[in-house]
Design a protein around this nucleic acid. Sequence first.
DNA 1: GAATAATCGAGACGGTACGTCTTGTCTTACT
DNA 2: AGTAAGACAAGACGTACCGTCTCGATTATTC
Lengths: 190, 190, 190, 190
Amino acid sequence: MVEVRRGRARSEVTRRAILAATRDELTAHGYDRLSIDRIAAAAGAGKQTVYRWYPSKVALVADCLLADRVFDGVAPVADTGDLVADLRVWLRAFAAQFDRPDTAAFIRAATAAAAESDQVAIRFYEQSTAAAETALAERLRAGEAAGQLKPGVAAATAQSLIGAMLYRLLTRQPVTAEFADQLVSALPVR
Amino acid sequence: MVEVRRGRARSEVTRRAILAATRDELTAHGYDRLSIDRIAAAAGAGKQTVYRWYPSKVALVADCLLADRVFDGVAPVADTGDLVADLRVWLRAFAAQFDRPDTAAFIRAATAAAAESDQVAIRFYEQSTAAAETALAERLRAGEAAGQLKPGVAAATAQSLIGAMLYRLLTRQPVTAEFADQLVSALPVR
Amino acid sequence: MVEVRRGRARSEVTRRAILAATRDELTAHGYDRLSIDRIAAAAGAGKQTVYRWYPSKVALVADCLLADRVFDGVAPVADTGDLVADLRVWLRAFAAQFDRPDTAAFIRAATAAAAESDQVAIRFYEQSTAAAETALAERLRAGEAAGQLKPGVAAATAQSLIGAMLYRLLTRQPVTAEFADQLVSALPVR
Amino acid sequence: MVEVRRGRARSEVTRRAILAATRDELTAHGYDRLSIDRIAAAAGAGKQTVYRWYPSKVALVADCLLADRVFDGVAPVADTGDLVADLRVWLRAFAAQFDRPDTAAFIRAATAAAAESDQVAIRFYEQSTAAAETALAERLRAGEAAGQLKPGVAAATAQSLIGAMLYRLLTRQPVTAEFADQLVSALPVR
DNA sequence: GAATAATCGAGACGGTACGTCTTGTCTTACT
DNA sequence: AGTAAGACAAGACGTACCGTCTCGATTATTC
């Protein structure tokens, strides 16, 4: 009893063009200036096609964040044995990312979307942010195991580090390498 | 050299009615469903009057949030000599505030507004968030002076603590007393 | 030299279903509310099939009108020798046709289609209206030959008679037997 | 107890611009290609303003026909005593009007609108067409009184003359001075 | 019987227009 | 000058159709 596919197949290519256009719109205008009309035009798609894939602006943004994830390509934190140096390298790279104007604009738009919608927020967390959190937490736990870090603080520390940078971003304070270094030096390492 | 006021005076009563209507709208529809038309009608005011007071939706919301200020009454962190205990008490109170549903909704609305507008972000930071940051940083510096905290980390630590709780709020994770305690125990105190 | 048809044959049954559905749509919604989507769905056909038979809405309507031809069965005008009586009989029958609500609706739809499209107009004229015109003109010319009618006016008179009834139809004035009689009595007969 | 006008007054200037744009659209694209978007843009008006004045396309077209009446400036038929000559002059002028491409296009659009809508049809008749009919009928009755025309045929004759030209227009046959002359010579004048 | 070819129902596609809603400005009469 | 009311230009919303294109399935004809 096979489900028969009828009619023309949906174009995955178009869907990706829509997501790419959404990303550009988010970066250029922010979340509440998103225009489905503009997205469709930029993607070379009809509006109906946008709505066929995504029933609402929120669903579109959620999938955009998932597909074009900023926190993507989050490398695992290297483990050279030197916890402080490893964290410093990783956090500096992360901060550099946050400090690029286009990435900053995109993260702010994503934050606005997450602030308005539980659905976006949870998806954003699970699909994007959690990866960075996990990468950090694993290296921190390794540090704990090696006796280089106060035990039992890995999870909270990981969220502190990411939260600190997000806070700087939202309050329009620069997210510099120096700030990243300060965060590392504020950790309870031995 | 007195500034002469001509014509009818602006009505402070009307301004408060506008803010009250905005608050109701925010509660009822959320930030991105705010309608100036509805606000004006609910406040019994003309739209022009709303725009005379507030040049944009964002400014209106900013003032509304300040009027109903969440971070208000941020107490200075007590200094009993026991840094860890003092931070624990203060952070628990702060976390409790963050975990109330209505306060959480307001902070999310404020975050959305701040994410979309540099102006709101800076104003929000200077008039709301910075107070908490300063309160924490002062106590931390006293701890540094007393040799209880690794020196030179007060500023970054204060931002980490607030950032961590904001991050939990935005990702819909509960901001519990336990989490507050974990943050404190992850500090480099002696 | 037979044209060889390969592949599946076109379904005449489907074509008739399309015309029937078009007729229903015209009756139900009028000319400018015609929807090819609805017609195809009602006929159980794909849209492409509709377009394979008819390149445009206008062609579809034209064929629909021809199939359900209003001016069909236009009898030649009888020639009993009494010109006035013959015209009276014929015009009364014609008027009766015009006065039926469903026929009137069809003619109005046809007129709308003809007003919008040269193609439909010419086709409609050649295949429908001209027959009535010719029938009238022939009898009028016979009358001229018999000295009963002012000579040289047959063609213009035929168009006047049909035009007069069409004008009444379009302006929502009833096309009665009395009107038909008045038209006849306004002719320059001896 | 006077009704107080509150708020900004409606702009009659804008309304006229909308009607003018509608007229241009009708002439250029025909009735069923009318686009409110285009009309609004051409009139330099917002769509809402169009809809504030006219609840539907049909109402807009109806008012457009009334305002920009084609049959307007219909002169009374001159009465020099020579019925045939008077009719000839008047009908030739009328035919010349019908034969101008832009007027022809506009009348066809009006006819399409009238064919689709009773409301437009009746308004079109009462406000435009009836004037020409009356002008003709009056001169014809004067001819009857003078014994120059078969008595009792004025009304039907007036409708025949107008109907004949409308019929030629709809079937894409030229409405020439010769045709006008033939119509006159087909009248039962003495 | 297998290969080829046109048609079929279905439905996604890029577009255009719909009629409604909201924004921020402007105008009016009243206070 | 400030106010409530509300018209205005602009433009986005989500829906309905347009005419085209793409599927897999269904008939025919030809080899």
